[in-house]
């Protein structure tokens, strides 16, 4: 009985996980630009891989009889690193392809933190996008 329940659970988790991974990767094709494309892999695919890993943990624990933490370690690692990679890719995209003037104001004293020069910390780092000025939008062609 326990074996049957475990089999059903494992099969269900594998199907759910691989479907989510497929949806996340399909979003990579379907969505229009990088800022939206980041959503697919970072959320759907990570969830899918997590489901597959939990399925494998249940399979090896119940049906094969050897319990291991490896899958939990991988799941934890993926869930910790997915936001980091998304943040880094978004930063790289901002620096390479978006002009600083096109970004909306942060409505705070500081500008966008990713444009601060490296090594300067604290609330009084030089700002290039202050709140007191009107939204800094220049016409196309302006620097």
């Amino acid at each position: 009985m326990l074996t049957l329940i475990a089999e059903i659970l494992v099969a269900l988790l594998i199907v759910i996980g691989s479907t989510f991974a497929l949806i996340g990767s399909f979003g990579l094709i379907k969505l229009p630009d990088l800022a939206t494309r980041l959503h697919g892999p970072t959320k759907a695919t990570t969830l899918g891989v997590g489901a597959v890993l939990i399925a494998s943990m249940i399979y090896f624990t119940v049906l094969e009889g050897d319990f291991s933490f490896h899958e939990l370690v991988i799941t934890l690692f993926l869930f910790l690193t997915a936001p980091l990679t998304a943040n880094f890719i978004a930063k790289a995209y901002l620096h390479r392809h978006i002009r600083h003037d096109d970004l909306p104001s942060t409505n705070r004293e500081e500008g966008w933190a990713t444009y601060d020069p490296p090594g300067e910390e604290g609330p009084l780092a030089p700002t290039q996008n202050p709140v007191t000025e009107p939204p800094a939008r220049t016409p196309a062609g302006g620097a």
Binding site: I14, P41, S56, D66, H70, T85, I89, A92
Partner: peptide, 29 residues
């Protein structure tokens, strides 16, 4: 270029899932 990095990252995650499924298929941990 950011699109390509994102695609590579997703490819790594998908490959990870594929390896895990292969491990279940062969019963090898």
């Amino acid at each position: 270029m950011a699109d390509r990095i994102l695609a590579l990252d997703t490819m790594v995650i998908d490959t990870l899932a594929l390896i895990v499924l292969y491990g279940i298929h062969h019963g090898r941990s």
